[in-house]
Simulated assay, not measured.
Amino acid sequence: MRSFSPLPSIVIEPIVRTALLEDLGRSGDLTSDAVIPYNETATLALRARQPGVVAGLDLAAFAFLLVDAAIDMEIHRPDGSEAAAGETIAKICGPARGLLTAERTALNFLCRLSGIATATAAMVEAVRGHRAKIVCTRKTTPGLRALEKYAVRVGGGANHRFGLDDGVLIKDNHIAIAGDIRTAVERARAHAGHMVKIEVEVDTLEQLELALALRVDAVLLDNMSVEQLSQAVAMVGGRVITEASGRVTPKTAPAIAATGVDLISVGWLTHSAPILDIGLDMPDHQNICKHLN
Rank of each mutant, 00 (worst) to 15 (best):
L30S: 04
S32D: 12
D33E: 15
D33V: 06
V35P: 03
I36P: 01
P37N: 05
Y38C: 01
N39V: 02
E40S: 14
T41D: 05
T41W: 03
A42W: 02
A42N: 11
A42H: 06
A42M: 06
T43P: 01
L44H: 01
A45M: 01
R47K: 14
R47W: 01
R49S: 05
R49Y: 03
G52N: 02
V53S: 01
V53G: 01
V53A: 04
V54M: 04
V54L: 06
V54N: 09
A55R: 04
A55Q: 05
L57F: 00
L57K: 00
L57N: 09
L57M: 06
L59D: 02
A60W: 00
A61F: 00
F62V: 07
F62S: 13
V67N: 06
A70W: 02
A70P: 00
A70I: 00
I71F: 03
M73N: 04
E74Q: 13
H76T: 11
P78A: 10
D79I: 10
D79M: 06
G80D: 08
G80L: 04
S81P: 07
S81M: 03
E82D: 09
E82C: 09
A83M: 06
A84L: 14
A85Y: 07
G86R: 08
G86A: 14
E87T: 08
T88H: 03
I89S: 06
A90Y: 02
K91R: 15
C93A: 15
G94H: 02
G94M: 07
P95C: 08
A96G: 10
R97I: 13
G98A: 11
L99C: 08
L99I: 13
L100T: 11
L100S: 11
L100V: 12
L100R: 02
L100W: 04
T101D: 07
A102R: 02
E103I: 05
R104G: 00
R104C: 03
L107P: 07
N108V: 14
N108I: 12
L110V: 09
C111N: 06
C111I: 02
C111W: 02
L113R: 08
L113D: 09
T118Q: 08
A121H: 15
V124L: 09
V124W: 02
R128F: 04
G129V: 12
H130G: 00
R131S: 10
A132L: 02
A132M: 01
V135H: 05
C136P: 00
R138K: 11
R138N: 10
